[in-house]
Amino acid sequence: MKASNFAYVRARSIGDAVAAFRGCAGEARYLAGGQSLLAAMNLRLLASDLLIDISRIDALRGIERRGDEVRIGALTRHAEVQTSPLVAEHVPLLTAAAPWVAHPAIRNRGTFGGSIAFADPASEFPAVALALNARIELDNGEQRRLVAAEQFFQDLYETAAEPGEIVSAVYCPVAGAGDRFTFDELARRRGDYAIVGTAIAATFDGDAIARMRIALFSVGATPFLARGAAAALCGTTLRDADIARAQAALADELSPSEDAHVSAETRLHLASVLLRRQLGKLREQRP
């Protein structure tokens, strides 16, 4: 299939892009790497009257540390996230997740900000942003605002971005000495969309968990923060009994989606299995 007819404009700045968006009488969308958007348009899952190409805006590029956060520009390629020494040192959960994003050809073109803005519930980076409670920077050409990941992902492909706002960067907290992370997903083949996946960020006080965030993806309309499972683990040392309680809490709070290939019951079972595996790996990590 092919996309329906649309107009195209290349923006020279964020202000230029926002002006084009506001001047469109129909449906306008921003185009960065295009690895998700164009595929959806070709399948007629999405339609647009105007594509605004923001891929040449230099202000949307770059990875840098700013205080206790790492700022990742929206146009940073997946492959750049995967190979960045700064990300590996300070945001290791992103480094762990990046190789699972599709295939090398897509990682070389797809953008980090595009993945966050598109908000595909089966994608890796939105779940990592939720696990880290990263802050998403939105720019309307006149001012910027920051939205916590918990408030950003609102429904299927729906975010807290106002019409015309551009995801310009993502701020990820710098990992501390007591922080441990783990990431994994289950898929039919490497590079396929995950049946279920999990991203975990935990802060340890000695051998005990002080804080934990467990984000699951490909389980519903948005990445899912498993608050009950995380609460069941705080203060524990991840003994087998502790992990079993977290699995029971997950079963109580998660009602996963189903599709033609995977039932809700199977997805819940796999989520529980994956949680147990990842918590076991987290327990084995040592400072």
Rank of each mutant, 00 (worst) to 15 (best):
M1Y: 13
A3M: 10
Y8W: 12
G23S: 03
A28G: 01
R29G: 03
A32K: 03
Q35I: 11
L37S: 01
L45V: 10
L45T: 11
L46F: 12
A59C: 05
E64T: 14
R65W: 03
V70N: 01
I72V: 15
I72P: 00
H78Q: 15
T83Q: 11
L86W: 11
P92A: 11
A96L: 14
A97C: 09
A98N: 02
P99T: 00
W100H: 15
W100T: 06
A105R: 10
I106Q: 09
I106T: 12
R107L: 11
G114P: 05
S115R: 01
A119N: 02
E124Q: 12
P126I: 03
A127F: 04
A127M: 12
V128D: 01
N133I: 04
R135W: 08
L138C: 12
D139N: 15
G141P: 07
R144I: 10
R145P: 06
R145V: 05
Q151A: 15
Q151N: 15
L156M: 13
L156S: 08
L156E: 05
A160W: 07
A161N: 05
S168R: 00
G176A: 05
A177F: 06
R180S: 10
R180H: 10
F181M: 04
T182G: 02
D184M: 02
R189C: 09
Y193W: 13
Y193E: 03
D205W: 03
D205H: 12
A208D: 09
R211F: 07
M212C: 14
M212L: 15
R213E: 07
L216Y: 10
S218H: 04
S218Y: 06
V219A: 07
L225H: 14
A232G: 10
G235A: 09
R239G: 15
I243V: 15
A246Y: 02
A249H: 08
L250M: 15
D252I: 06
E253W: 06
E253Y: 09
E253T: 10
L254P: 09
S255Q: 13
P256Y: 02
S257C: 13
S257T: 14
S257Q: 14
A264C: 07
R267L: 05
L268T: 10
H269E: 10
L270E: 08
A271Y: 03
V273Q: 11
L274D: 04
L274R: 06
R277E: 04
L279M: 12
K281E: 13
K281L: 14
E284W: 08
